[in-house]
């Protein structure tokens, strides 16, 4: 098969980008989309030209590195999978394919199709954890957790942090990402003690990073490689409202139990 690729090229964060057209020849239908791009890049490298920069690592849909907007859809035309799981048999021979990076203010472009997604890490650092020290944990079976609840928590926890939700959102909002983490921990007893603080600090961080707000259009859900449900966004909203109610009865700034005394 042969394809015409219109690929976004941008040398560095500050330089202006543009589309460049490439031909991909001798593509097998069993090749993955990324292997097809590998082929194009090998041709460029052999000519001494700089290959198209794009992210990939595990190539089995779990690390969340790959991040291409293919013909206007993050991760391409198939639902419930990441770019690396997309195969060329999905495209008709001779098709023209436009490839763009995730586009969001919070995800500045590093080069070509590679963006900086550290904003998501910073949102996690703001509260996406249970503050427990290593050691001294009680036996795992002391906490009994309903099977259904554990399964729902797992549904939320399966987020791979790729950022497709942001890329797909009209408002470049990271609500589905935050919702997945907040819901995962809010559903489990381990996460309960910090749920009030967590939802606020994570959402504040999300706003700070320059993501937009949720328009309830659910494009995020449609492109999520793990099919994370937007019902978790409702959970997040509920958690946030709850935090507003609960917090009004508490001191404004609860003392951190881990503040260094020295």
């Amino acid at each position: 098969m042969t394809f015409t690729l219109k690929i976004w090229r941008q040398k560095s964060p500050d330089e202006k980008g543009r589309f460049v057209t490439y031909k991909a020849h001798d593509v097998g239908s069993g090749m993955s989309f990324l292997e097809m791009l590998d082929g194009v890049n090998q041709g460029l490298i052999a000519k001494g030209e700089e290959p198209v920069a794009f992210e990939q690592d595990c190539r089995e849909g779990i690390c969340g590195s790959c991040s291409l907007v293919i013909n206007g859809i993050p991760h391409g035309p198939d639902r419930g999978m990441s770019t690396c799981q997309l195969y060329m048999r999905r495209f008709p021979d001779g098709a023209a394919i436009t490839i763009e990076p995730w586009r969001a203010r919070a995800f500045p472009i590093i080069k070509d199709l590679v963006v900086d997604r550290r904003a998501l890490d910073r949102v996690m650092q703001a509260g996406g954890y249970v503050s427990v020290n290593t050691g001294g944990a009680v036996d795992g079976n002391v906490l009994l957790i309903e099977k259904d609840q554990a399964e729902t928590a797992m549904d939320a926890a399966s987020c791979i942090g790729c950022g497709a939700c942001v890329a797909a959102c009209k408002n470049a909002s990271a609500m589905l990402f935050v919702a997945a983490k907040v819901s995962h921990l809010a559903l489990l007893p381990q996460g309960k003690p910090e749920r009030t603080r967590r939802v606020k600090t994570m959402l504040d961080a999300m706003d700070r990073e320059g993501f937009g707000s949720c328009g309830n259009q659910y494009e995020c859900e449609a492109v999520c490689p793990k099919r994370i449900s937007v019902r978790f966004i409702a959970t997040l909203n509920r958690e946030y409202l709850r935090a507003g109610v609960v917090e009004s009865g508490l001191p404004a700034e609860p003392e951190s139990p881990h503040a260094e005394s020295a």
Partner: peptide, 8 residues
């Protein structure tokens, strides 16, 4: 985006 397609 240069090309944009809505899914749902």
């Amino acid at each position: 985006y240069a090309v944009r397609e809505y899914r749902q």
